[in-house]
């Protein structure tokens, strides 16, 4: 009863009153819980102590696991999105605005000589599809068909890649296939002569001939079919 500070007279009076009241209160008698109630509570405490902690008692583990899964998922997604794309072929100029065959041929020749370019073209189909959709590259499947039609000796089509071929052979074939793809692209554009004038088509054929590409003959035949009677330059008359 001496827990009240004695600085204040009111507090001192309250303390004295509580002391006297406490003495009277103590004489009220020791009310105690029934024995059965005691036993029930003690049994309950014993059962609780014997039970191993349940999952809910380890709520922090549950929270930690959830947080870890979220962080892992987010990091994987971010990592995949930030992975740089493989080096791609520099986009060709917009054909409607600059259909210069010289520039195109030079670029295609450069691409033929560049192994790295060939590697990048050998990337999975998905990448090439996305590039096609943006209009930067030609459709390679269309080039495959065109190359088959001109029966280029070095052309190897995808049909030759059987399931039994080793990975190294498949890669080699794909590399060869992609290395001639730029000429095919040129032919495709040549076929789509809406973008090239007649003179430009002839210049492109002449360039192919000068570069030693045997397909200039088939392209010339195609040109003559499309433009019968058009005067050919002397260099193409043979």
């Amino acid at each position: 009863m001496n827990s009240i500070q004695n600085n204040n007279p009111d507090d001192r009076a309250l303390e004295q009153d509580l002391e006297s009241l406490g003495q009277a209160y103590q004489r009220l008698g020791p009310d105690e819980p029934p024995a059965l109630l005691d036993q029930a509570i003690l049994n309950s405490a014993k059962r609780a102590a014997e039970n191993k902690p349940g999952w809910m008692d380890f709520g922090w583990i549950h929270g930690l696991t959830t947080a870890a899964v979220i962080v892992l998922t987010v990091s994987i997604v971010l990592t995949q999105r930030q992975t740089p794309l493989p080096e791609q072929v520099s986009p060709m100029p917009a054909e409607a605005t600059s259909p210069e065959p010289d520039i195109l041929i030079e670029r295609e020749t450069h691409m033929q000589l560049s192994t790295e370019r060939a590697d990048s073209l050998a990337e999975p189909k998905r990448m090439r599809r996305s590039e096609n959709s943006s209009g930067l590259l030609m459709d390679l499947s269309a080039m495959d068909k065109l190359e088959e039609s001109v029966a280029a000796p070095a052309a190897v089509t995808a049909e030759n890649e059987t399931a039994g071929e080793s990975m190294s052979q498949a890669s080699k074939l794909r590399l060869e296939h992609r290395s001639i793809a730029p000429i095919g692209a040129l032919e495709t554009r040549f076929k789509q002569s809406q973008q090239l004038s007649v003179e430009e088509q002839l210049q492109a054929i002449l360039k192919l001939k000068q570069a030693g590409d045997s397909r200039w003959e088939s392209m010339l035949k195609s040109f003559i079919t499309d433009h019968p009677g058009y005067p050919l330059p002397d260099a193409l008359k043979n």
Binding site: D38, I41, L42, A45, K46, A49, E50
Partner: peptide, 11 residues
Amino acid sequence: RGNVQAFDQLY
């Protein structure tokens, strides 16, 4: 920590 006797004393 699982000591039932401790609870008995406390009770």
